[in-house]
Design a protein around this nucleic acid. Structure first.
Lengths: 353, 353
DNA sequence: CTTGATTCCGAAAGCGCTTTCGGAATAGCG
DNA sequence: CGCTATTCCGAAAGCGCTTTCGGAATCAAG
């Protein structure tokens, strides 16, 4: 692992360091002849500029940080790997690095951001899963570090973001269920300090109103993200007297928990009760029954977010980079038309036997 | 975002740059008085040493890379986020950075490693999910970059690794099934260029032999990692004339696919057929039925791997850092005793009606 | 053959930090 | 009070690269 330096190449070639550097970086004041000569030797020695030196000299970090959502340890985030892969691909087009940074706790995220900014380690940041009121966004704006948000906060006018329109998706899902005859539609949400959770709840409510359905707060239950949270929330909804005939879940993992809760009550999802998730997780194909879900274009996002961030770092105006994608309903087998008998049974006996 | 420099602090304090630097880094030749004075001002200005400059001067990268397994984009890797979180925690104890690097294809991983080594970007690497014969390991040894492998290759004598003893786990699982009366035990494996796949298959075979069960290659089916691969493999096993009464799967996601395949054939897992997975995924609690699985101590691994790598970077001998954890069987409801009737039915009709 | 414009490269400064070295100031000792 | 041993800090070199600037060599034109 002989770490080759510019100086070495220069002496080997009988050139000055500066000349070699400019040759390697395609400066126009270097003759074609020496340029190729230099590059050949660099290749041969597998030369790679020391990044720290280069960064120090140029002042550009050539790296971007992904702020890992706090408290990720316990939950296995299905999307993180995919997002990182996409980001990495985007950055690779320039040879930039991808840093993963996290803070020990949500409270200390501000410090982590401040540290990032003042150390000059990165030229940009991607922030995931914002809160409704997100201090991190304000902070990033203050310190002047280019950034893009994966998702949106409540106020999303003056920064760059990439999001999926889950509000519309949930409205559509309510439409869909209403069309199937459902009138008592339940909603399992996530903690509403997450803005995505609020958005989906809003979409649900609008859908309910739009379809002229009874807006009953008892049909709304908030649970933790994840299958256990979904199961608990579904249990609450299903054991209430005014049991819903369909349930919309804020995430697929919650929906999987809800499926389990339904089966535990001898309700067959797709027949006795409709359950729809959101995310489009592959694993939903093999749940029992296969999960109807609103699928978002995941594969695409990381790459796109990276490209957008790079454009901003290059001087683009953040507000020019706000992209809203839409989700689409993927019907599998966990939803179905309202069955009158089910409804009646539910009403009179609080659940199917 | 006034980026404060050493020079600025020095002039502000009426000291030399070098003195300020040594004060900040707790050199013993600085009086307590000026040390506190310096640190106070540094605090006040939220001073953070420019990382590139520091790295250049010291020659240590203060960063570690995680080599993202190739082809991760399509699959949602449930473990990556958790591993990264643990790694990050470990690195945070020193203020080091975590880089995520990937190569466009498996073939180009060598280049990626070489680039890492010659650019001096990182002082160490963690490699995941090794192949049986893993050229990356040899390469890392050649270039002299400290590293640790999450998992083991076939030959695992001369480098550092952290692994879970899945061979024993699968032997135990066969024992368990044999004790329940099963004799025709199937195995759904992953592609055996992954060493973990080979290991689990080996464990299965040893278990079969150890229990004096018929070693029938037709009971072994290799599928892709993931639920769809598991479903396909299970379909093959279940439609063969010599249908197994129990199936061991190399991963939980495969097992989830296998559960679906069984249900599709009107076999009730846990009763008509036993299905056991490996990984201990949370979501297995809410499959139908809840999945019996061999759980590995996930939460612990990232942190531990990071600590081990740091110790090696500090000069520890890689072979002193080889840690084998064990998995434990978590019984849920997808396994059960052999039911003679089922067996007969299977034999005569190739499946329960 | 002289002159002015080009082409190409060397020299040197500087990015912000660390670290060695030497020396001034102070302390300890006889 | 003089001398050596300590304590503490300043000065300067250097990490490996980029980039500006100026000058030597080459060219074309007069």
């Amino acid at each position: 692992m002989a770490r080759v330096s510019l100086k070495f190449l220069a002496s080997e070639l009988g050139l000055a360091e500066g000349t070699v550097s400019r040759a390697l970086n395609d400066y126009p004041d270097i003759s074609e002849a020496t340029r190729t000569r230099v590059k050949a030797l660099a290749d041969q020695y597998d030369y790679r500029a020391n990044h720290s030196a280069r960064r120090l000299a140029t002042g550009v970090a050539e790296a971007v940080a992904y702020l890992m959502p706090p408290n990720t340890g316990s939950i296995s985030e299905p999307f993180v790997a995919q997002l990182l892969t996409g980001l990495g691909q985007s950055l690779a087009t320039r040879g930039w690095d991808l840093l993963v940074v996290q803070s020990p706790s949500a409270e200390q995220e501000g410090d982590a951001i401040r540290r990032l900014a003042s150390s000059g380690k990165v030229s940009g940041v991607v922030l995931s899963r914002p809160y409704k009121e997100d201090a991190r966004i304000k902070l990033l704006q203050e310190v002047g570090l280019p950034f893009i948000v994966h998702g949106r906060a409540q106020n999303y006018a003056d920064y760059a973001w990439y999001d999926v329109d889950s509000e519309t998706a949930f409205m559509d899902a309510v439409d869909h269920l209403a069309m199937l005859g459902h009138r008592r539609i339940g909603f399992i949400g996530a903690p509403t300090y997450y803005n995505f959770a609020q958005t989906r709840l809003d979409g649900f409510r609008k859908g309910v109103m739009h379809n002229g359905l009874p807006a009953d707060e008892a049909l709304i239950e908030i649970g933790e993200i994840g299958d256990s949270g979904g199961e608990r929330a579904a249990s609450v909804l299903l054991s209430s007297a005014k049991q819903p005939t369909a349930i919309l879940c804020a995430t697929d993992t919650q929906a999987i928990g809800a499926l389990a809760a339904a089966r535990a009550r001898n309700l067959t999802p797709g027949q006795d009760i409709s359950i729809i998730g959101y995310d489009g997780l592959d694993i939903g194909r093999h749940t029992n029954p296969p999960l109807t879900t609103m699928a978002q274009p995941q594969a695409y996002s990381g790459r796109q977010i990276g490209d957008m961030l790079l454009a901003i770092i290059d001087g683009g105006s953040p507000t020019d980079f706000q992209e809203l994608r839409s989700a689409e309903l993927v019907r599998r087998l966990s939803d179905g038309p309202l069955r009158p008998t089910t409804l009646e049974t539910n009403i009179f006996h609080g659940g199917k036997k």
